[in-house]
Design a protein around this nucleic acid. Structure first.
Length: 642
DNA sequence: ATAGGGTTAG
């Protein structure tokens, strides 16, 4: 049916793009193609990323990895990231991000821009920004993506700051070339929107006047923005000058106006006016009506609860508490209070010194108090120097977040504040011990049905002597091959420098690998499981041993991951990255993968690329990272697997 | 050989 791959590709692309043929049809065509090429795979990934089934993109991607002779190329990733964006699956996109970093496309501005957009749309502005700052040559889309990410996330200050930064960066070439910079229309419009939302009509007006090109969106944004800002300015002016009735009159006038677009700011001022009149119930009722049609954001905004605080800068503490309490009780018909609202209330009560009431309030909560609730109580205990309650709050918090060091630090501050220095040092000791316990790791290896377990510097194994001599041989080989132990990666608290090096070399992983080398045949896979994350040095060593001894090694981290995908580590230099999707979360809703867990392990060493698909091991549902030192390596040039 | 990123508000 198909005469050659090129025409088939062309036909296929046309069928995915054409409005006259469905994606299902394109898929049928695709399924008839015995060996789809990279272009076709990419095309289908793209088509699905636009479709209502973006998870199909990921499935096709898995097929590319497992069944095709191709590796993803620079075109693959924007499509995949688009799919992850549509899926709103942070973990999925993080896997792709990991692959990008480790692949040869880490500097591709197209891919990085789509990652910014992805992270921003998942609400992770922090990650979006991390990606953004690392782009060497930011283009207008990079800036635009980041700025609109901030705008959409409500971080207007940051958006503005970035905008200024962008202007500053553009000023230089501008001065040299003496040419006017034509601002990107989309960006200008986004900026207009931002100014309008911030209520700074003058800035919006200034920008609008400067814009060389304006479209319908520019005009609409400007008119709407000016209008809303004008309404808001009026309402809040009356409200803040002790004229709530006038403020409300304006608000009602606004509601009658057809074109008006009340926003969060409008509601804040309006509610404040109702609060001033002591008619919060009326205000809430009115809000309820508005909320049902507009302003969805406001419905879930815990800011509402804190609202009275902003307008109470003269109010007594008890007055504030009254308002908070009243607001909390009255919000229920409008919004089902979430845990954040409860935390806010605990905060209000606690700050006012009503610690007992705060505790009662927590006890009566219909939902399980979160760490933030206990954190609010703990914070209040610090203000009011209540050591006993602080201890309780802290221990409840630690039950939920055992590794929350901040809680212990806070408690220790409370001890310090109340002069309990013994407790301070006791706590510091405890923190150090838990720090040590945290890193107590073991590695295990199965040989012929027997599990062999190795702790760091372990010498309990019957073949210990042989293992250590093999290890010496390995170390010698590594040294002669130029490998230097990276001391900074040591996670144990050891004081002496030479001890550090020794400690590193004696991680259980290395013992297990040495044992693997002497106890398995050359064709066997050396498969090691580590209870904690594998340190960078062990990873590197595993790769080197794999090369030196020509052995395939699979070294696997396991990490309890109730949240599903999570970065094992993400530091500023991106020198060590590991992301994965936990098997128990994948497939449960999105049905992304069936038997394969998509796993990427990314390390800073640029010389090797590892991407592995690890068959799902159902007995271990806490797997979060797999290091597969495979014998085949990626070829960057051909995109074909050897 | 073919292809890629951001896009306001309603």
């Amino acid at each position: 049916m198909f005469f050659d791959a090129y025409s088939a590709s062309k036909l296929f692309t046309a069928s995915t793009l054409s409005p006259f043929s469905s994606l299902e049809y394109a898929r049928k065509v695709f399924d008839e193609i015995p060996e789809p090429n990279l272009y076709m795979l990419n095309t289908l990934i793209r088509a699905y990323s636009w479709s209502p089934e973006p998870s199909e993109s990921v499935k096709i991607f898995l097929r590319m990895l497992c069944e095709s002779p191709y590796f993803p190329n620079k075109f693959t990733f924007p499509f995949l990231i688009k799919a992850a964006t549509k899926l709103s699956r942070l973990g999925v996109g993080q896997v792709f991000h990991g692959l990008v970093v480790k692949s040869s496309f880490g500097d591709d501005v197209f891919i990085l821009n789509s990652l910014i957009h992805f992270y921003a749309s998942c609400g992770d502005l922090d990650f979006a920004y991390r990606v953004f700052v690392r782009i060497g040559e930011k283009d207008v889309v990079s800036w635009n993506s980041m700025i609109s990410g901030f705008v959409q996330g409500g971080c207007f200050d940051k958006a503005l700051e970035l905008f200024r930064e962008m202007e500053a960066e553009n000023v230089k070439p501008n001065a040299v070339t003496k040419k006017g910079i034509k601002m990107d229309l989309t960006l200008s419009n986004a900026m207009l929107d931002m100014y309008a939302k911030c209520g700074s009509v003058e800035d919006a007006k200034k920008l609008f006047d400067e814009m060389e090109e304006k479209d319908i969106v520019s005009w609409t944004t400007m008119i709407d923005g000016q209008e809303t800002a004008t309404w808001n300015a009026l309402i809040s002016a009356y409200d803040q000058n002790g004229k709530p009735q006038e403020a409300l009159a304006i608000f009602h006038q606004l509601q009658l106006s057809k074109n008006a677009n009340p926003d969060e700011l409008t509601f804040v001022s309006t509610l404040s006016s109702y609060a001033q009149l002591g008619a919060m119930d009326v205000g809430v009722e009115e809000l309820r009506l508005i909320c049902s049609t507009e302003c969805m954001k406001l419905r879930s905004s815990p800011m509402l609860l804190l609202l009275p605080m902003y307008y109470a800068c003269a109010c007594s503490h008890s007055g504030l508490v009254e308002e908070g309490r009243m607001f909390f009780n009255q919000m229920e018909p409008v919004v089902v209070p979430g845990v954040k609202h409860y935390a806010c209330m605990v905060d209000i009560l606690g700050r006012a010194g009503l610690l007992e009431e705060a505790v009662e309030f927590i006890e009566k909560m219909p939902i399980t108090p979160s760490a933030s609730v206990w954190g609010a109580l703990l914070g209040a205990c610090k203000i009011h120097e209540n050591v006993e309650l602080a201890e309780q709050a802290c221990s409840r918090l630690l039950e939920l977040e055992p590794e929350n060091d901040k809680a212990l630090v806070l408690l220790s501050n409370i001890y310090a504040k109340t002069g309990k220095w013994d407790n301070v040092s006791e706590l510091k000791k405890r923190m150090r011990v838990s720090e040590l316990q945290k890193e107590r790791g073991w590695s295990s290896m199965e040989v012929n049905g027997t599990l062999h377990k190795f702790l760091a510097a372990d010498n309990s194994h019957p073949l210990s002597k042989e293992i250590y001599s093999k290890l010496d041989e390995i170390v010698a080989k590594l040294k002669s091959s130029g490998h230097v132990t990276n001391k900074s990666l040591l996670l144990q608290l050891v004081d002496e420098e030479d001890m550090k090096e020794q400690g590193l070399n004696l991680h259980g992983e290395k013992l297990a690998i040495a044992f693997g080398l002497i106890s398995t045949s050359p064709s066997q896979l050396i498969r090691i499981v580590k209870n904690l994350r594998v340190c960078g040095d062990c990873h590197t060593v595993a790769k080197l041993i794999s090369k030196l001894y020509n052995r395939e090694i699979l070294l696997r981290d396991s990490h309890i991951s109730s949240l599903g995908a999570r970065p094992i580590r993400f530091d500023d230099e991106l020198d060590l990255l590991a992301f994965s999707e936990a098997p128990e979360t994948i497939g449960s809703d999105g049905g992304l993968v069936d038997e394969d867990v998509l796993t990427a392990v990314i390390w800073g060493d640029e010389t090797e690329t590892l991407l592995v698909r690890e068959p799902l091991d159902l007995s271990s549902n806490s797997v979060s990272a797999v290091t597969h030192v495979s014998l085949f390596e990626k070829s960057h040039n051909t995109n074909e697997k050897p």
